[in-house]
C-alpha cells in the first residue's frame, strides 16, 4: 500500500564530508509518507549531518538527495511542508526575542519578502502556541523559560506552518525524563495524524518504544527497518563496537557496554558497570 505513494525523502548513494572527513558514506535511504523514523548511532556517527543533508544545509559530494521529489535546495514553496526542530541547546537564549516572535519565524517562508506579519499570521502563531499549551508564555523572552517550555516553543515554530514532514535533532537533550516522555507521546499523536516524523536520537531504548522505523548508522547506514528487526546484537556491535550486546528488559531493549568502553560517552546518573543507553 505504501509503495503506491511517492516517497517523501530519497537518498541514493550519498557521500557528504564534514570538516575534511567523510561524514556520510554511501547512504541510501527512503522515507515514505506517514513513517515515524528514528535515526540512531553513537556520537559523531553522522546522524545530525544526515538530517542537515536532507534539509539542504550540507553540500553533497556524490549521490542524489530528493525531498518531495526535488533537490532540497530547489524546494521553493514546498519548504513550508517541512518542519525542523534544531537541538535546543544550540540556541542563544540571551537573544532579545519573545516566544511569539520565535514561533512567527516558522511562517517566514510563506510570507514572502517585504511582508510584515499581519492578523492571519498572528492567529496562526496563537493557534500553534495553544496547541503546545504555552499561550500564556507568548510575550516572555525565550531565556526566561524552562527546558521543557523551550522545547515546546521550538516545536510550535516547526508546526506553525502545518508541515507534512517533521525533523527533530536530539529533541530530548537537556530535558528531564517526564518532559521527554510527554514529548514522545505528543509525537506519537502527530504520527497518528499522518505527519511523517524523522528524529535523531541516541536513546535507543526509549525511541524503540514509539517509532515504527529505525535507521542505525555509523557513517554508513548499517540497518534500516522495524525496531524489532533492526535491534539485534550484530547491528549494535556494528554501531558501538564488538563489545556491545543486547539484553532485553521486558519489552525495552537496552544495550549493555563494558565499563571501560571508549565507544560512547558515559551518560550522567548511571551506576555500576553497565551503561544503560
Amino acid at each position: 500500500m505504501q509503495e503506491e505513494k511517492e516517497p517523501q525523502v530519497e537518498l541514493e548513494h550519498v557521500y557528504v564530508s564534514y570538516q575534511n572527513a567523510i561524514a556520510l558514506e554511501d547512504i541510501s535511504l527512503t522515507i515514505w509518507p506517514g513513517q515515524f523514523l528514528a535515526v540512531i548511532g553513537p556520537n559523531g556517527s553522522g546522524k545530525t549531518t544526515l538530517l542537515r543533508t536532507i534539509l539542504g544545509l550540507m553540500p553533497v559530494l556524490q549521490g542524489t538527495v530528493r525531498v518531495f521529489g526535488r533537490p532540497p535546495r530547489a524546494l521553493g514553496k514546498l519548504r513550508q511542508y517541512i518542519g525542523y526542530v534544531p537541538q535546543i541547546t544550540k540556541i542563544d537564549y540571551s537573544f532579545p526575542i519573545t516566544v511569539s516572535n520565535v514561533v512567527l519565524m516558522g511562517l517566514i517562508g510563506q510570507m514572502g519578502l517585504f511582508h510584515m506579519a499581519g492578523k492571519r499570521e498572528r492567529e496562526q502563531v496563537g493557534r500553534a502556541l495553544e496547541e503546545m499549551d504555552i499561550a500564556d508564555l507568548a510575550r516572555r523572552q525565550i531565556g526566561e523559560l524552562s527546558g521543557g517550555q523551550r522545547q515546546r516553543v521550538f516545536l510550535a515554530r516547526a508546526l506553525v506552518s502545518e508541515p507534512k514532514l517533521l525533523f527533530l535533532d536530539e529533541p530530548t537533550t537537556g530535558v528531564d525524563t517526564t518532559t521527554s516522555s510527554s514529548l514522545y507521546e505528543f509525537l506519537l499523536q502527530l504520527h497518528q495524524e499522518g505527519i511523517t516524523i524523522v528524529l535523531v536520537s541516541h536513546d535507543i531504548g526509549v525511541v524503540a518504544e514509539y517509532v515504527d522505523q529505525i535507521a542505525c548508522m555509523n557513517r554508513r547506514l548499517i540497518a534500516h527497518g522495524r525496531p524489532q528487526e533492526v535491534l539485534n546484537g550484530e547491528v549494535l556491535s556494528c554501531m558501538y563496537g564488538p563489545e556491545a550486546g543486547l539484553v532485553a528488559h521486558g519489552q525495552v531493549p537496552h544495550i549493555v557496554l563494558p565499563l571501560h568502553s571508549q565507544v560512547m560517552k558515559p551518560s550522567v546518573g548511571r551506576k555500576g558497570g553497565e551503561h544503560h543507553v
Binding site: L55, G56, L57, L75, G76, R79, Q80, I82, Y84, P86, I91, D92, F95, I97, N101, V102, L104, M105, G106, I108, G109, M111, L113, F114, M116, A117, R157
Partner: peptide, 22 residues
Amino acid sequence: FLFYKELLFITFDPEMAAVAGV
C-alpha cells in the same frame, strides 16, 4: 526596514532561516 524580519531571523538562527527558505 524592508528586510527587517529576514535580518532578524538570520541573526537569531541562520540555520533554521535557511531551512525555511530565507
